[in-house]
Amino acid sequence: MKLASYILVLFTVLSCNSNAQSTKLSLEPKKGKAIAVFAEGCFWCSEHIFEAVVGVDDAVSGYTGGTTKKPSYEQVSSHKTGHAEAVAVYYDPKVVSFKELVDVFFASHDPTTPNRQGPDVGSSYRSIVFYRNAEEKKIILDKITELTAKKVFPNPIVTEVKPLMDFYKAEGYHQDYIKHHPNEPYVKGVSIPRYNKFKKTYKGKLKPNS
């Protein structure tokens, strides 16, 4: 769970129904489009980051990587479902490639901290890249090899590389959370600083005013 107690209270208020569940999301993109799935800690942060990339149409917060069907946020936060907070990124492959999105992934979080991202601790915050085919798997593994050889990170990369699994769209109040709650303390103290750090290091194209 996120460490700040006020976040837990906010979730209770916003969810209205503590037993609310996620919904299974179709992983079949529209004609001419593509989809990629990444887990890199808090999905509020990840959604905001990927949606800023030129060529990305949408990023959806959700859960994947585990076995529980249609899990609720509370279940995932117990770290007993096997799921991680993740984003499904819908994009135009004519504008931005899967390889570039993998670059975004590694530039926007610390892939060396097992079961942790910043202040958020637990297996639901672990680092995972999902692939749809052998080509995407090779792109991911080649990137890890490159980053390791260049010693970009001081510690070993612990990112999991897994085939794309069922993806469950998170409850509605999680979607576009930063956009709807720009002054929320966690957003101001964690999400926005993480995004600003990403912008300083990422060499690719970002949308205007992002």
Results as ranks from 00 to 15, higher is better:
F98I: 01
D110W: 04
R116H: 01
P156L: 10
V76Y: 01
N209K: 15
L10D: 11
S18T: 13
W44K: 10
E40S: 15
G55K: 11
P193M: 10
E47M: 07
K30Q: 15
N115D: 14
V60C: 04
L3G: 13
A4D: 15
Y91P: 06
Y168G: 04
V53D: 00
G118E: 07
F50M: 03
K99N: 09
A149S: 11
G82M: 01
P114R: 14
G62M: 12
I157S: 05
S5Q: 15
D103M: 05
K143E: 07
S5G: 09
I140F: 02
K33I: 03
D58F: 00
P156C: 09
I157K: 12
E28H: 13
P193N: 02
F130N: 10
K199A: 01
T201P: 00
Q75E: 15
F11W: 15
G41W: 06
Y131G: 03
S108R: 05
F38E: 02
N155Y: 09
V96K: 04
M1G: 08
S61Y: 01
P185C: 09
G65C: 05
R132E: 08
A36P: 03
T81M: 10
L101Q: 07
H79W: 07
V161N: 10
I140D: 04
F43E: 02
E85L: 13
A88Q: 13
F167N: 15
S78F: 02
K2I: 09
V53T: 11
P119I: 05
M1I: 06
G41R: 10
V76A: 03
F98D: 03
F153P: 10
K200A: 15
V60K: 07
N133M: 11
N133P: 09
I140T: 03
P119S: 06
A20V: 12
L164F: 03
F130A: 03
D58V: 04
S191Q: 04
N115G: 05
D103I: 08
Q75N: 00
L206F: 00
A84F: 03
Q117V: 01
Y202S: 06
K24Y: 04
V56K: 14
H180E: 12
E51P: 06
V95D: 03
D166I: 06
C45Y: 02
S61I: 13
G32H: 11
V9W: 15
K94Q: 14
A86F: 02
G65A: 09
K31P: 02
F105N: 06
K169A: 01
Y131K: 12
Y173E: 04
Y195E: 01
P119G: 01
F198P: 08
V13C: 00
A134N: 13
K169G: 00
Q75A: 14
Y195V: 14
D142H: 10
D92Q: 00
K207V: 04
V53Y: 02
Y186V: 00
P156Y: 08
Y202A: 11
A39S: 14
K199M: 10
A134P: 07
S61Q: 08
F43T: 06
K162D: 03
S210K: 13
G62N: 08
S72W: 07
T159G: 04
K203L: 14
G62D: 03
I157R: 12
S22T: 07
V87F: 05
A36C: 11
H180D: 03
K188I: 11
H48M: 05
K70M: 08
F106Y: 10
P163I: 06
P185G: 05
